[in-house]
Design a protein around this nucleic acid. Structure first.
Lengths: 338, 338
DNA sequence: TTGAAAGCGCTAACAT
DNA sequence: ATGTTAGCGCTTTCAA
């Protein structure tokens, strides 16, 4: 309402004004007792606190954010919360953020690249910064999005220094994995490839190509697969047909899916077939046989993502990608070829 | 600044005012073209849209929420995003919410009951409603929290009709599981108990107590355990000592952890020991042996949580708890006693 | 159809 | 130490 009163107030519940009135003080005073800092007469402060309690008042974070210009909250967009890998990273991120007084809210894009940008923008509009975990969108879309949602840092995608970036070195990782298998005497290896548009996949492809190059007598076959249990489970016929003695699965989840199928099919692991994963999700240790995989300190990575994001938020961004090289965890699912 | 200008604007980026000025129209007009509905001269509208594009403007959701009083966003507090069970439910919830034009943001409490209430309040302050998934806090705290964060609905805890509530019938479920084992001839059963303060645990305890009552010759031993892989893994010595021929694990994650240990220890499943889980997480189908467990349609449950929350938000809340009874999925980890 | 202005709930500068 | 007031960026009533 222009004029005397504006439009009907869409307000919910008690506001700072109610408290001020009820306590017989100004809003400013209420604000001061709420936020500490300023000096307030102890009498008054007490009275205000009592009223706040009685009326069960909580300040509107929305109003607060608008006024302050910051929310001390950051958003994370994750492609698949169902992959324990992301959960681990998220955990580290969350803890680090909390230590700096920041809250974390997360949005799951459920592997839908269409949704990612909108989710990120929307999240960013309610928070002070966002982290994008392994975005699935095209590089073009990613680069277009970055300035819109800054400060932003990206996990497992490069950004051409247009944003902070933290990477797992899948290239080096997969090479180590392949060498492990080769050292064990394997010469026919199958690679269960992940999503063809994912950086994490072509980094692996690139590493394996180098291994092929270097080791003339080693044969590495690509088998299109995916990233889920199902995908691993369904890969069996192709794996069987390949006559490989060892399988490098795209990640642990895929490897575990395959393991399930192999058990059903009566294929002994590692007797008939060696199998490796990637990520070292918690369950990899408990499968039977336990899974040989590449371990990165996921919590640590989460912590670093926070550090980089924090830098983006302040003075001096860290634009050189931070790279983590995973290490081999040799377990029960691989063995020396007789 | 009282006086001419208030304090330094903590603004970020382009605002509606910039657009209005650049397009030579009023903020009201910009708002109108942004939100459709009202009739705007096509000329003007076009001009505004061009400017918006050029300046890369996105409206502040914070300001919008404050003005509108709603955000078309809801929050979810989850105790452990690492448990695939919650992820499944979240998926169903998310889809249903999206269909109604709502966005979902989630906060992970990482199993810390201390944090839950604060997370929930904070989330609620930025959203229109919240869903609490299996809150770990005491009933007292829960009941105190409910009015503060309404509209709210709770998954897997009762609320005494102080909020919407959706439940999995663990009581009936565990009874069916026990009967399955008993039908298979088992007479000494171990129960790996979950968190002692969780409803989901004592509902199971209650069910098992009834079974004990009804079946004189059946012995069911409680073994304190937990909810994680590790917990299941570590339960072995106690399980072994109990001389049980079958184990009812608190949930799939625990069962899977135990399975891993049993493989290490050379205990054959189901040869030496039958093992059951609960929840039917995706991996349960792929473990070796595949896991006998109780299946509920988790996505469906998520969808229903949304329905109930939606009702809370509008006219007529649904205060009678919605209960889902899970069904047995008998798989490879249980067998008839010889 | 368009613009001016009030107001959403809060914070912080300024004045007292 | 406390109150007054402008303003955060948006929406919407009211007047033109």
């Amino acid at each position: 309402m222009a004029g005397k009163r504006a439009r009907t107030a869409p307000t919910r519940g008690t506001t700072i004004t109610d408290i001020a009135r009820a306590a017989g003080v100004s809003k400013a005073t209420v604000s001061r007792v709420l936020n500490g800092g300023a000096t307030v007469n102890e009498e008054m402060a007490k009275r205000v606190r009592v009223v706040i309690d009685e009326l069960g008042y909580t300040p509107s974070q929305t109003a607060r954010s608008l006024s302050l210009g910051v929310s001390r909250t950051v958003g994370v967009v994750v492609p698949d919360l169902g992959n324990p890998m992301f959960h681990q990273v998220l955990h580290g991120f969350n803890r680090a953020a909390a230590r700096d007084g920041y809250r974390v809210v997360v949005a799951d894009s459920f592997e839908d690249p269409e949704n990612e940008a909108e989710l990120a923008r929307d999240l960013r509009d309610r928070t002070d910064a966002v982290a994008l975990f392994a975005p699935r969108m095209t590089r073009e879309n990613l680069l277009a999005l970055l300035p819109r949602v800054a400060p932003v840092t990206v996990f497992n995608r490069t950004t051409g220094k247009n944003a902070g970036s933290v990477l797992i070195d899948y290239h080096a990782g997969v090479i180590e994995l392949a060498r492990h298998l080769i050292d064990l005497g394997h010469r026919r290896i199958a690679f269960l490839a992940g999503p063809s548009d994912a950086r994490s996949n072509w980094e692996r492809e690139r590493g394996l190509a180098e291994v092929r190059e270097a080791e003339g007598d080693v044969e590495i076959n690509d088998i299109a697969c995916g990233y889920s249990f199902e995908d691993g489970y369904r890969a069996w016929p192709a794996v069987g047909a390949s006559a490989a003695t060892a399988v490098i699965a795209y990640n642990d989840v895929v490897a575990l899916g395959l393991l399930g199928r192999l058990a059903e099919e009566g294929v002994s692991v590692p007797g008939d077939l060696s199998v490796t994963g990637f990520d070292d999700i918690p369950f990899a240790r408990y499968s039977s046989p336990s899974l040989t995989t590449m371990t990165a300190s996921l919590e640590d990575i989460g912590r670093q993502i926070w550090t980089v994001l924090r830098a983006e938020m302040t003075d001096s961004p860290i634009r050189d990608p931070l790279t983590f090289t995973p290490a081999l965890s040799a377990r029960g699912s691989t063995r020396m070829l007789p």
